[in-house]
Design a binder for these strands. Structure first.
Lengths: 119, 119
DNA sequence: AATACATATGAACATATATTCATATGTACA
DNA sequence: TGTACATATGAATATATGTTCATATGTATT
């Protein structure tokens, strides 16, 4: 009968019912590739420092370089990625660009992450 | 006088007051390196699929392989990282290990991330 | 127009990372 | 004790990623 089949892994055969259920539930969630890109974007110390720095005020690129300790070029590259991921926005004022966080999703994410770290 | 100095970036000199303020505020937050590790852990499609799959039930390694489409070895490697990051736990039952999410921080993070994706 | 400056971008390089394959571990069962 | 099986682990490899250096873009100032 099928009972054993459901209760045990037979030569790398799986718990079919559970697998089917899990697959179905996963369909409702968003694309893991896109979500992974978001988290990967937040998964770099330099980019995280940039986000930290922007939590309370807008800053220009050279400010961000000074705050984070990274070069201006490195900061600029990272800002690009943060822009593409819609995590920051900027406004121009003369020669300078002032960056700020695009919405508070980012901050909520950060705070939730920090809670886990400091369990 | 210092007025210009505060208002403009002079040859890559920064808005000192803002920089100092930002630096002080950042001290209160957690270590960006550790937080980055957490996000980086969540920044991979395979690991994210594993987390997706574990949201509603515990699963063994071969189940996870079937659900995610990755090899059992790959899943095992990724589970190791998820374990180290305290995102999943497991219990043994005979030859098999049943994995599950360690706490609901992970799910909250995921849902918040998905909100950003589907802005 | 020419120069200076803030930032962006591209190429190059060194490092990190995910998967695969081979092998080891630990448990059950004969 | 020996075999089978579920999973873990290590080495190897191909790919992704972050930084640096050099150069380009766009804006203000003279």
């Amino acid at each position: 009968m099928d009972h054993d089949f459901e209760e045990r892994c037979e030569t790398h055969c799986v718990h079919q019912d559970k697998v089917i259920a899990a697959k179905r539930q996963m369909c409702g969630l968003g694309d893991p590739v896109r979500l992974a890109e978001l988290f990967k974007t937040m998964g770099d110390p330099t980019r995280l420092r940039i986000i930290y720095a922007l939590m309370n005020q807008e800053l220009c690129v050279c400010d961000l370089a000074a705050v984070t300790g990274a070069s201006e070029s490195a900061v600029s590259h990272q800002l690009r990625r943060l822009r593409q991921q819609q995590l920051v926005k900027y406004r121009r004022e003369g020669k300078m660009l002032y960056y700020s966080l695009q919405d508070n999703h980012v901050m909520v994410l950060m705070k939730q992450g920090l809670e886990h770290i400091n369990e």
